[in-house]
Design a protein around this nucleic acid. Sequence first.
DNA 1: TAAAACCTGCAACAGTAGTGCAAATTTATT
DNA 2: AATAAATTTGCACTACTGTTGCAGGTTTTA
Lengths: 137, 137
Amino acid sequence: MNDNFDILTKNGLSVTEGRKKILKLFLDNEGALAHADIERHTDAAFDRVTVYRTLQTFVDKGIIHQIPTTDNSILYALCRHKCGAGQHYDEHVHFICNSCGKTICLDDVTVPAVKLPKGFKPEQAAMVVTGVCDECK
Amino acid sequence: MNDNFDILTKNGLSVTEGRKKILKLFLDNEGALAHADIERHTDAAFDRVTVYRTLQTFVDKGIIHQIPTTDNSILYALCRHKCGAGQHYDEHVHFICNSCGKTICLDDVTVPAVKLPKGFKPEQAAMVVTGVCDECK
DNA sequence: TAAAACCTGCAACAGTAGTGCAAATTTATT
DNA sequence: AATAAATTTGCACTACTGTTGCAGGTTTTA
């Protein structure tokens, strides 16, 4: 049976309880997750450190990506597209809902290009929009 | 003499050594500052807590604003425009240089509007571009 | 199935951020 | 100018976040 866990083997990772559970969390969840969310959703079944390391590993392998926020927390979300180890293509807009607090990847909305002043060379662009999401309106 | 410190009195704040020095840091500095930068630049003349509280006060009063980053640190920068207590209009693009590490407010580059999926109501938008700045090119 | 490779949990540590309260400073008042 | 009132500061303490080394356990490979 194909359990989505070939994502792990494909990336040369051992298939373990922790990784399966955390990966499933991301697959089941539309929005982005903070480290604290993950600890909460796994009933503290795993050590804090394991969660950190798992997330770091997933980022390294291009399975999830980080999202910038204004409030000093790192959010993680699945890379839906063609990300790979060492390279991320998460150039879509992220939406943070002020009502339910969820962070959602708007995979279909790409970050628009902006004209920068002379001398500035852009490499990556991230965009975060806050407001009210479609479920809270 | 007008020492820029009327910014403080205008906002109903007492004029103190710490606030003068931190405000001056922002006025003298093109880029954005992290809490750690401020401690460094003030030679530990002030208590950590004072710096935190001063920054929080400045944000509350609309003197500085926060900038989102991917690496779990909060950056602060002067509000050049028409910000006021309780409301920020920092809708300009921020640039983080991969070479010198500085974060620069591109005051003249406004965040472009994006078309969001049905049901999403935007309220604020933040954009961070990374790359190489005009001094490092 | 055994060896090798890899992953996990524990303990310890460092950095970051927030609070209450007494002392000190700044502002307002006389 | 001197004092009272209001505000701000520094200290001690607490809490949370993130990292590392290492021993023991699990998964993969042969």
